[in-house]
Design a protein around this nucleic acid. Sequence first.
DNA 1: CTTAAAAGTCAACGATCGAAGACACTGCGC
DNA 2: GCGCAGTGTCTTCGATCGTTGACTTTTAAG
Lengths: 96, 96
Amino acid sequence: MRIRTAKDLGLLAREQRKRRGWGQAELAERVGVSRQWVVAFEGGKPGVELGLVLRTLHELGLELEIGGGEQSGGAPALESAVDLDALLERARRTDP
Amino acid sequence: MRIRTAKDLGLLAREQRKRRGWGQAELAERVGVSRQWVVAFEGGKPGVELGLVLRTLHELGLELEIGGGEQSGGAPALESAVDLDALLERARRTDP
DNA sequence: CTTAAAAGTCAACGATCGAAGACACTGCGC
DNA sequence: GCGCAGTGTCTTCGATCGTTGACTTTTAAG
């Protein structure tokens, strides 16, 4: 899932937490933050600290991936081949 | 690229900034933060605020993607079909 | 080699954070 | 309807943030 805002991320984290059957208090304990912090993060608070966010995502089994990175001045070099195996492998990991 | 720590992310942001030929001051101005913040972020400071991080990544043309999300208790339900077109489309957006 | 640009570092300050504690509200099983 | 678990919200407080300004060090252009 593409993330652009803190709200996007918070929503995703909440969904994943529920999928795991955890309450906010349980997640907070696992991560080592206060429950209030979890509430704020899930609510999309932009001021939350990056390190805690990363730890929380890890605890939720969510993986952060950065893509993009085109040169500012023009089109990126074209890949000459499409690696279907790699695509499938990634899809398997992302949308099991 | 897989991101686990604030340090990972900061390094990547620095590389991308350099690739674009921008100085820290220029990036700071584009994002609307102080140069000191850019220095701190690139240096991997975990306390930096998520909202500013996301804005910075966007300005650098980096896309944030979240994957993973397996059920905690067992194997996820298997999809019966693989949508190659969707996979390719997503790959095109993520790794152009 | 010289000099300017870029990057690193330090300090002060008002704003905000995260934690702890607690109360209010919601959802659900019995 | 009642009770309990989960979630939302409020307050206080010490710690940290991001900004501004400025000085130092490193890098790169000429």
